[in-house]
Simulated scan of single mutants.
Amino acid sequence: MNIAFSPCPNDTFVFHALAHGLIPGAPELKVTYADIDITNRLAAASQGPEVLKISYAALPWVLSEYALLPCGGALGRGCGPLVLSKGSSDPASLAGRRVAVPSERSTAYLLFRLWAAQNVPGGVGEMVVMPFHEIMPSVRDGQIDAGLVIHEARFTYPSYGLDLLTDLGSWWEADTGLPIPLGAIIARRTLDLGALTGWIRASVEYAWAHPEASRAYVREHAQELAPEVTQAHIDLYVNEFTANLGEDGYAAVTALLARAAGEGLVPAVDPAALRLPL
């Protein structure tokens, strides 16, 4: 079975057991490691593997062919994207400014647009899409006015001399009371989705039960992150929602996509389409 997920520590931690043949009955996996903007495009073009990790923001474009699985993804609290600048912590300073974003089909982007509509008088200026690893250096060097960052940037942005304009996760949680939907696991609707869900959930549970087993695999793909940053990343993004979305998880996804559709950012989604068929 072909699967694509990111090389980030949370994904390699979650899928280690499945990718290494440690889950009884599961098929052999052929893994492609790709950033989420690449998997978003593959899924939207119907050219992706059978199973992919994509952004929840990309779901509205792919639900006709792919189903959302209720495990393996990333939702949580205290783990939202950040908006960073240099020399300012006032959201109003973004009015008319250039802001770098890693993707326009990401939860981070949707949260930023929803937040900016409430907090930036007159709106921001140009949105510049650039690779994630270039955003903080570009803000630091004055090539861009502010940057929208995700993942390990939560732990490393002070080393770039940057200031926090807002934590979009904290804003979302205060506004809705719900966790932040970040990365979704989707699978082609032609697959045995029940069996696949069981295998992925078993891989999550194996990772928790045997954390030492995946360390070398995680480190291999961790892009030179310090061990303490890698562990903090896993602790933050692998949680109860990774094992099971549950009602709060589905409510969070529904709320995000409904608000984004209301702003014209994504197509409208029937909430029933987010659940696996019985």
Rank of each mutant, 00 (worst) to 15 (best):
T254L: 12
F15R: 07
G78H: 11
T242G: 02
E104Y: 02
A4K: 01
R41I: 08
E134N: 13
S89M: 14
R275L: 07
E50F: 03
D145W: 08
M127G: 01
V253M: 13
R140Y: 01
A261M: 14
A258P: 01
A252I: 03
G147E: 07
A117L: 06
A273P: 01
T107D: 03
H151K: 11
L278Q: 11
L59P: 08
P60F: 15
S64N: 14
S64A: 14
V139M: 10
L236K: 15
A92F: 12
T230Q: 15
P158K: 10
V218L: 14
G147T: 06
L196Y: 10
W171H: 01
H16T: 00
G169S: 04
G264N: 06
V229E: 14
L191N: 07
A108E: 10
R97H: 05
N239F: 06
L111D: 06
A67N: 11
K30L: 08
R215T: 10
G169W: 01
A44D: 13
V149F: 03
L191E: 08
G147I: 04
P9S: 04
L114D: 00
G246M: 09
A117I: 02
F112A: 07
A26P: 04
A184N: 03
A117K: 10
A100L: 05
A187V: 04
R98V: 05
E205G: 09
L111F: 08
F112R: 00
V238R: 05
D248A: 13
Q47A: 13
W208I: 01
V62A: 11
I23D: 11
L191D: 03
P49E: 03
P131W: 00
P102E: 07
P81E: 04
D141L: 15
